[in-house]
Amino acid sequence: MSPIIQGILTIIIGVGGCITYFYASNWVLDHLIFPARTDDRGRNINRATMVRPWLFLFPAIFALGLYLVYPVVGSFYRSLFNRSGEEFIGLGNYYYLFAEDGFRVAVFNNFLWILFVPAAATFFGLIIAELTDKLSWGNLAKSLIFMPMAISFVGASLIWKFVYANDPDIGIINAVRDSMGLSPIDVLQIPFWNNFFIMFIMVWMQTGFAMVILSAALRGIPEETVEASILDGANPFQIFFRIKVPQIRSTIIVVWTTITFLTLKIFDIVYTMTGGNFDTEILPSYMMDYMFRDDGRATAVAFVIMLIVLPVMIWNIRQAQREA
C-alpha cells in the first residue's frame, strides 16, 4: 500500500472514528441511558446535560492522561527501584543523589542557568528590539540576530567550540589574547566562569526569539502614550523604561518563562561543549550520564527537574489567567 493511501486512510479512520464516537455516545446517552420519553422526562434531560460535557471531553482527557499523567506517575514509580528495576529501594535513589557532589554541582549550575539565561536573553532581546526599530537597516539586523534560532543546539555548540578554541589561529578569544601577547587559555576550563561561556551560547540562540516577540509587542504600544510622555518631558531612557517596558510587561513575562522552560530542558550544549566536565554539569546532562546505565537514578533526576519546573509553571499559568 502506498504511503499516500495509507495516510488518507488514517485520516479517514481517525476523523470518522471521532465523529462516530461523538455521535454514537451522544445517541446512547439521549436514547438509552436517560431517555426523554419516560415519566421523569425533565429530570432525564437535565441529567443528560450534566453528563454530556464529560462524554465529549473524555477522549481528550484520556489522551492527556495516557501521554502526560501516566509517564509522570510511571517515572516516579520507576525512580523507587534500583538500576535493574527489580528491587524496590524506596527513596534510595534520592538519598544517593543528594549525597553526591556531582548532583549538587548540577543543581547549583542549573539555578545559574535559570537565573542568567532567560534574564540575559530577554534583556538583550528587548534592547535590540527597541534599538533596531527605528533603523533603516533594522530588519536586516533583526534577521541576522534571529538566525541562530534556526540552528540546532549541537550545531551551535560546534560553532562556539571554534570561537572558544584553544588555538589562536581558530578561536577568536585566544586570537585576541595572542595579539596582546597573552598565552592562550581554554575558557571552558576556567572554574565557575566556564558556565557563563556555555550559557552564553544559549543566550545567543534565544535572544532572537525574545527580540522578535518583544519587537512585535513594542509596536503594539499606542504611539500616543509615547508622544504624551515626550510632551511630559521624559527622555528616551525614561520613555523606554517607564512608559514602554511596563506596557509590555505581560509579553516580557511570557518570553522570560518560555526561555526558562527551554533552558530547563537543555542538555545538548553542555554535553557537546564539555561533556559535563570541569563542573559544568546541569541536571539534564547529569541525567543523561545515568540514562541507560541506571534508569532508577535517571528517573529520580528527571523527577527533581520536574519539581524545579513546577513553581515556574504554576506561576506562569497564574499570570496567564490574570491577564485573561
Binding site: P222, E224, T225, A228, L231, G233, A234, R242
Partner: peptide
C-alpha cells in the same frame, strides 16, 4: 517638553499601567 505646551489626545493616551494619580504626576 520645553515649549511649555500640553496636549490632550483624541484617544486620551493615558499611561495604562499607572493610576490616575501617577498619570497626572508623571510630568
Amino acid at each position: 517638553a520645553q515649549r511649555g505646551i500640553a496636549m490632550v489626545f483624541q484617544s486620551y493616551a493615558l499611561y495604562p499601567h499607572m493610576t490616575v494619580r501617577e498619570n497626572m504626576s508623571f510630568a
